[in-house]
Write a protein that binds this DNA or RNA. Structure first.
Lengths: 150, 150
DNA sequence: TAATATTAGTTCGATATCGTATTATTGAAG
DNA sequence: CTTCAATAATACGATATCGAACTAATATTA
């Protein structure tokens, strides 16, 4: 890679950062008081990929330290949105399952978000998002692998 | 937009979130102890766009509440990386300027980041990033405008 | 010009993040 | 089997984020 290649790459990550910030703020405006994006992220993750995951698995999926996930899960449990059971196969670990209340919160957030999406993103052809996805996925996978490599 | 369009759009923002997380972690690994991504972001902003901005302007540029920026700037000032002077045109506000030490910290971070970028992103054609930029910029601008619209 | 509204920034309190240390459990090595 | 190493989760402490309230200065309006 040549030095002049870094300009667009820095700009790319800069845009990613700002878009993340804007989309997170927008999402949080549609969550119940006291819940923030990571809480929603976990509920969404459990619905999409199913119950039965451990806190560590979830932390890795989100690329956050397990201590952060521990706190996020504690909030969800305290609000009755997930259940935490000791893993019968390994008493050190726990098994996370979403509750019906958790599903309801996720569903309500998505439903109330859709008109906002329409309003903000309606001018874009959905093909733009589809077209951007393969590169983003590849990039994410690559960065993910590099993370724990030496 | 049809209901089935939302799947790819949700996926898109999901990837954005994870990539942001990964790139932020990577950046912070190259910053001096006690500095995090927002600190670097401000230093970078001042170098790229010049001194003479007020805290509120900077907060808006980063889409964060002014209270958050207030704290970020306080840390930078305490470490001697920026100067804060009362705005002679309006005594309520302040003018932010980066110091030489601030420039040095930014420069060192970038220099030490480049080999990492090479290692992780070397397999990508830089054209991929350039090609992705226009849509990201348009999207960011659109979301930004929608933010303070009713 | 005096009273009021608006604006820039900080302070404060509640919660979040994350690194380090700790506890409990399991797995490996002697 | 016992001891030691590795692993899952949590507790703790320091700092960050962000909304609400506050202070100081400027702009508006009566």
């Amino acid at each position: 890679m040549k030095p002049e290649d870094f300009g667009p790459i820095f700009a790319f990550f800069n845009e990613i950062g700002i878009i993340e910030q804007l989309s997170r703020t927008q999402l949080e405006a549609h969550l119940p008081e006291g819940l923030i994006a990571p809480h929603f992220g976990v509920l969404n993750h459990l619905v999409r990929l199913g119950d039965g995951r451990t806190p560590l698995q979830i932390a890795k999926a989100f690329q956050v330290p397990k201590t952060s996930m521990s706190h996020t899960l504690a909030v969800l449990q305290k609000r009755g949105l997930i259940d935490m059971a000791t893993n019968p196969e390994d008493a050190r670990s726990k098994i996370i399952a979403i509750t019906q209340a958790g599903r309801d919160v996720r569903e309500a957030a998505i439903v109330s978000l859709i008109p906002d999406f329409q309003r903000v993103l309606g001018q874009f052809d959905p093909e733009n998002f589809k077209a951007a996805l393969p590169f983003l996925i590849k990039l994410r996978e690559t960065m993910d692998k590099a993370r724990d490599a030496p």
